[in-house]
Each structure stands twice: as C-alpha cells, then as structure tokens.
Design a binder for these strands. Structure first.
Length: 500
RNA sequence: GCCCCCAUCGUCUAGCGGUUAGGACGCCAGGUUCUCAUCCUGGAAACAGGGGUUCGAUUCCCCUUGGGGGUGCCA
C-alpha cells in the first residue's frame, strides 16, 4: 500500500463527515481473499494468495422464491459464484422460503432452473430456511437469556409480545468491499424485532443465523441490504460470531434509469432463455454490469471471467441494463460457438416454427454454414432461413417494391430463368457466369439482376451470397420460384394498369 | 422528514494529482462485398455545477444539484 498522509488517519475529517472510500485508510484491505487483486492492481505486482493463510471463501445466493428470477438477482448469484470460483471457495444456495404464501415448490424449482441454465450450480445441497425455524427460535431464546433481547408488545399494538433485539447503543461500522467503510450512529439504529408475536422469526434473525450455520465468509448481496447490515453486525456480535465480509452490489436500473418494476417485463431470466439468448452471453453481460476486468476485454468466457474477477473492481453506482449491448455480446458468443452446437440451437427454432421437420441433416448444416454470422439469436433462425424450408415464404413488401416493381426487372428475371434452365451444371460458378453474361448482353450491371433474383427466390433483401443461395436451393426450386413470382408480378402489374 | 450511498461520452467502463481523458456498445461517414451480417478505416460524443487544498485537479475536501437505497411484528 502506498504511504498514507498521517493527517488522513482516522475515519472522518474535522467536520465529522465521512471521507469517501478512496481517501479512507480504513479501506486498506485486511482481507486477502477480497483484496489481493486490488493490491496487485494498485501496486502493479503480483502477490501470492497462498502465503496468506486465508481459508477458502464460502459465498451464498439467498433468494426468496417468488416464481421467477430477476436479472438483478441473477447478477447477485453470478458475483457470488465468480468470487467463490476465483478464490477456490464454495458457492452455496439458501432458499429463503419463510413466506409460505409465495414459496411454492414450483417457485423453488424456478430458482434452481435459472441457476442451472446459467451454469451456476451450488457446490452443496441447498439449505431451505423454512426447515430451520426451531434453530432460529432457540437462538432467540438464548439472546433473551443473555440480555441481548427482550419481550415487548412493540408499539402497543395489542398483538401480544414479540422478541426485540437490543441494539448495543454504540456506533456500528463495517468494511464494505465495494463501498468502503460504512458507519452508522447509535441514534440511527433502533432496536428491532427478532421474533414476531405470532412466533415467526423475522428475516434478520433467520438470515444471520443461517449464514453462521452455513459458515458463510463473504456476504455478497444487493445494495438494498446495506442498512440491514448494521443490524446484522450487531446480531453477529451478540451471537458471539465473527461477522463475515460484506460486499453490496449496486442495483441494476432500466432504460429510464429507474429501478426495475413489474411492468418492465423482459427482465426475468426465463425470458432471456425463451428469447434465444445464450447463457454464457447473459452471464458475460451481467458480470460486466458494474464490474470490468480493467483491461478492456468485453467478451469473456466463463473461465476468463472467473480468472479476472475481483470484487475491488466493482462499481459503487447503479448500472443501466442495455439490451442492445447484450445483443452484441450474444452475437459474439454465438459466433464463437462450435458449429454443431449453433446448428442444434438454430434447428430447434425451426422445429418450434414447424419447419424442417424431415429435413436432411446435411442440408440443414449447409444452410446454417452459409448463413455464417447473420444469425445472432436462435430465436431469429427460422425467420432468417424460412425460404430454405418452404415454398410458402413471406415477401418483404419494401424489397418487392424496390427490386421487383422496377422497370425491366421482370424481363431480366424471365431471361435469367431461361439461362438458368439451360445450364449444364447448377453450381455457384456456373450461375455467376450465366448471370454476368446476361447482364453484359443487356448492358446492365450484375447488381441489376442480382437484387430482383434474390427477392424473388427468398422474399428477402438480405441473405447469403446469391450464387451459393441459388445453388443451395437447387435448380428445381429456383426455376419454380422465378416462374411463380414473374407470373404473379405481371398479373399485379396488369391489374394496376387496368385499374388506372 | 430523517439516515446512508452514488455521480467520466447516450450506455457499460479505464483512470488513484501532471493523459491529446483511453476502450467497448450504439450512432454517423468511408472502404470491402450482389444485399445483409462480418471485416477494415475515420468521425461526433464525457469529467453535473460552485467553492476550496495544491505549482497543478477528472482525481483530495466542502457545498449545491441530480440519482439511488433504507426508514415494517416484509424479504
């Protein structure tokens, strides 16, 4: 660590204000697992993790199962997982299912599914909080006995007595791995309920007790828990347990810069899955929301993320979710995928649209090979390749207008059709020669023939190179399609003439 | 209201007192190509404002403004 100005020692300046994290000596990392990377980065030299006798960390993801997993929650899981993996530790899952109304079995399964899909498998069987109520109540009794808690009809509600935790009456501070040293005055820390008058433990008690039971060393969670942490620290002490390290991640906000609300929709993990995103891409994107490896890399594999991850690099301010960048990252992961895997995903989308049910595997492979980088999401696969699999392919209105309803276009197509019909071999090279030859004969540029042909045989203005496209479709289909389109467009033109 | 946190291009970020403030997505313009996608080149685009401290502030301090979180017998 660089030398600190002695005048900066202490946690506050003369006016009593807290210093921001970078100026605070208290931010000096004491926890090697948390901060070795920070030191490394600051001093620009490598330091061994081994010599520091830090036991491997244990992190946990502790969602309350509500049926769907939000990307904000998934990101919390990702950071916990990344941190555990980075330091050779253990990633745990605790299902906080004490709200019996919402915590159905299906809701729990949804959590497991989301984690499995993203590849964040817990290293030990999940702990279900609902099964620990007896232990929670027992601990409350102990706190009562030790004088750290008392019974009271809080607020005189007439609901009966609940168990209230007695705050120690002193300021409480803790070191947050992303926010630095946080302190709260005793006056701002009132006593709080541990056990409701109906006999159920509240979140704070259960949460802390379970973290102790699970031997959690690093609590990495959302920003919304910062205020709770002061209470939790007091609880740990009263319980005679050493508090874990804390790291509070900034929230993810929506396109308007506001916290995600129900109506924002498309923010649930399952929806990204349904929309054809790759789990690796979502993982990559979410890991980069609020954190960066610091060396400019943007597209990282799971392995690279683990190797580079560092809590000290986490941004303390909220990050905005950008679906456009996610699309880009997804495309990047897509193109890095082994061909067979990408093929399988694309074919699944075809099947989902009732296409290519009995298509030849070789043909399928060929189609997606010539599509190259054009498909960025599985869910786009069918729409972008429909014309390879059915004669009932849609025509883009704009493309038809621009390319087919242009003077001379249909004549060109008719002439080209005859050239194609007469070709000895229907391969890309022959097709190109034939088309070029016809263009020359008619004093046109090749493009004048290429565009209408593409629209006629595919209905689309975009796609693979025309010659390889034609070769792939094969002579029969190409000639049929040209005939049909020419006839249809001529009829349409005649109608228009007659009408005017 | 009170408590706490935050603030670099539109977005995600690098930056740790001296930089032409860097990168990525997106955008714009060129190039390659039959289109689209890819690829290549170039461009526009940021330190919220005001005071300090300092020879020198994006960087350290304060205030303002703006955002966020918390203020339950919810989790």
């Amino acid at each position: 660590m660089r030398e600190l100005d002695p005048r900066l020692r202490g946690r506050a300046d003369p006016s009593g204000r807290r210093l921001p994290r970078r100026a605070r000596p208290g931010r000096r990392p004491r926890d090697v697992a948390l901060c070795a990377r920070a030191r490394h980065r600051r001093r620009g030299r490598r330091r061994s993790l081994k010599g520091d006798c830090m036991p491997p960390p244990r992190t946990r993801f502790a969602p309350s199962p509500t049926g769907r997993v939000h990307i904000g929650n998934l990101r919390v899981a990702i950071f916990n997982w990344l941190f555990a993996r980075r330091h050779g530790g253990t990633f745990l899952l605790r299902v906080e299912d004490t709200d019996r109304e919402r915590s159905t079995e299906a809701a729990c399964q949804a959590v497991l599914d989301a984690l499995a899909w993203t590849g964040l498998e817990p290293d030990e069987p999940p702990l279900y909080q609902s099964g620990r109520q007896a232990a929670h109540l027992e601990a409350a009794e102990a706190l009562l006995r030790s004088g750290h808690a008392y019974r009271e009809d809080k607020g005189g509600t007439g609901r009966g007595e609940c168990v209230v935790f007695r705050m120690p009456g002193e300021d409480i501070a803790f070191e947050d791995a992303v926010k630095g040293r946080l302190i709260k005055r005793a006056a701002d820390l009132p006593d709080f309920v541990l056990v409701r008058s109906d006999g159920h433990p509240v979140f704070h008690l259960a949460n802390v007790l379970d973290d102790i039971a699970m031997d959690v060393t690093h609590v990495i969670r959302g920003d919304d828990h910062v205020e709770n942490t002061f209470r939790h620290v007091a609880l740990y002490r009263a319980l005679g347990a050493a508090p874990p390290r804390f790291a509070h991640l900034p929230m993810i906000v929506n396109a308007q810069g506001k916290p995600y609300a129900k109506r924002d929709g498309d923010a649930y993990v399952g929806e990204f899955r349904e929309r054809g995103y790759l789990p690796e891409a979502l993982l990559n994107y979410l890991a980069l929301l609020g954190w960066s490896p610091g060396d400019g890399r943007e597209v990282l594999t799971r392995k690279e993320l683990v190797a580079a991850f560092d809590l000290a690099g986490v941004q303390p301010s909220p990050a905005r979710f950008d679906p456009v960048k996610l699309d880009w990252i997804n495309g990047e992961h897509m193109r890095r995928l082994p061909a067979e895997e990408r093929l399988a995903g694309c074919v699944a989308d075809l099947r989902a649209h009732g296409l290519a049910e009995d298509a030849d595997p070789g043909y399928l492979a060929h189609v997606f090979a010539i599509m190259e980088d054009r498909i960025k999401r599985y869910i786009d696969a069918a729409a972008q390749t429909v014309y390879f699999f059915t004669e009932d392919y849609p025509f883009e209105e704009k493309a038809v207008r621009k390319r087919l309803r242009r003077p001379g276009a249909l004549d060109h197509l008719a002439a080209l059709r005859d050239r194609f019909a007469a070709l000895p071999a229907f391969d890309a090279a022959s097709l190109e020669a034939a088309l070029q030859d016809l263009a020359d004969a008619r004093g046109e540029k090749a493009a004048a023939l290429i565009h209408p042909t593409r629209v006629a045989v595919s209905g689309s203005a975009a796609g693979p190179g025309l010659y390889v496209l034609l070769e792939t479709l094969g002579r029969e289909r190409v000639l049929d399609r040209l005939d049909r389109v020419i006839a249809r467009e001529r009829a349409a033109a005649a109608d228009a003439d007659g009408a005017s």
